[in-house]
Design a protein around this nucleic acid. Structure first.
Lengths: 193, 193
DNA sequence: GTCTATATCTCGATAGAC
DNA sequence: GTCTATCGAGATATAGAC
């Protein structure tokens, strides 16, 4: 867990909210739990933020930006386009924690909170764009077969990752995630024959 | 929505809990909401069930069995093995409602409730078995390439579906689901060249 | 089987002192 | 900036009458 001992109250509040949003989601995260984890009193919390929704929006944007940064390193980094897509699939992940972004899509209260829903939509839109650009580049360069639709392949890659998280958490083991990714990589390689 | 008007109290309680588990998950579902939707009083509810966990376990097992029944129709129904896998991917779904089974994997409180976690694990185990059997049959018959690992392909297919739900809900549109599935079907067909 | 009353917590926030 | 007190509402039951 992130060490908050040296940070100021506002930073500790954001960090503990980031963790709780990831672990429990928005609806199941209480201000009380945030304050306890941040070791911050109630007065302090309502001084820095107007309430739970405000704090969650700030923390979720932070989580989303970190997720995007990691994805950019894979999908817009070095290597051929096909290698980057496969690298994104194979990237090391804390599988059993799930995806801090995708998690919110399962939280009805989060989807009903406009600021959270907006961040969710925009984050996946950028992710989709990164993957689609790599796929399009792969088709253009001949690494991927001509008849592949880049947008479809990109969405499939994102879905395998998001679904892998779900299957792994259901099982209590990272094995389903790894198996799903291995299957997707095998299909991509076989399709390029 | 399911019409409960003619059912007895116990049935109405189970049906409204099934819906609420699907819509809101376990942690965010209150006994109060269950009773209101079922049009049943508190005394009745605590007469038929020991509490929220008991009722949720019954209702979730019901949801899981319905999901499995639908999957069996695709994966263990008529047609060639490859057609059945593609048929499972293409099956009509209420995409924006999400998967009533996969939903629970994102709910920390549900995972911490042994009876719910057990149903979740067992349901995906059976789904995995159905998909893997179809994949193995496809490889044996030559419909799918020899080098395909049936367990990996099966897991990828499940992940595309589960991830498709996540992406669709994040976007508020079924389009990402359909695109992810289309990409997966295209890959399976291309790999069989 | 179902009803109403009651109990104890927690939620999410506001108020005002320091 | 942070503290403590307080609030009305809802969560999750239990008790006992009918």
């Amino acid at each position: 867990m992130y060490d908050m001992s040296d940070a100021d109250a506002r930073t500790r509040l954001i960090d503990s909210t980031r963790e709780l949003l990831w672990e429990r989601g928005y609806a199941a995260m209480s201000p009380r739990a945030i304050m306890q984890r941040a070791e911050v009193g109630q007065g302090s919390m309502y001084h820095h933020f107007t309430g739970k929704a405000d704090l969650a929006a700030t923390a979720f944007a932070d989580n989303a930006e970190r997720t995007l940064a990691a994805a950019r390193r894979s999908l817009a980094g070095a290597g051929s386009a096909r290698e980057r897509l496969i690298g994104y699939l194979n990237r090391r992940r804390e599988v059993l924690r799930g995806c801090p972004v995708g998690r919110m899509a399962q939280d009805a209260e989060a989807l009903d909170t406009p600021e959270l829903a907006a961040v969710l939509r925009e984050t996946f839109a950028e992710l989709r764009g990164l993957a689609a650009a790599a796929a399009a580049e792969g088709v253009a360069s001949g690494e991927l077969p001509e008849h592949v639709d880049p947008d479809e392949l990109a969405e499939t890659v994102l879905a395998v990752v998001q679904g892998g998280y779900v299957l792994a958490r259901a099982e209590g083991s990272p094995v389903p995630f790894d198996r799903a990714v291995a299957g997707a990589v095998a299909l991509i390689k076989a399709a390029s024959c």
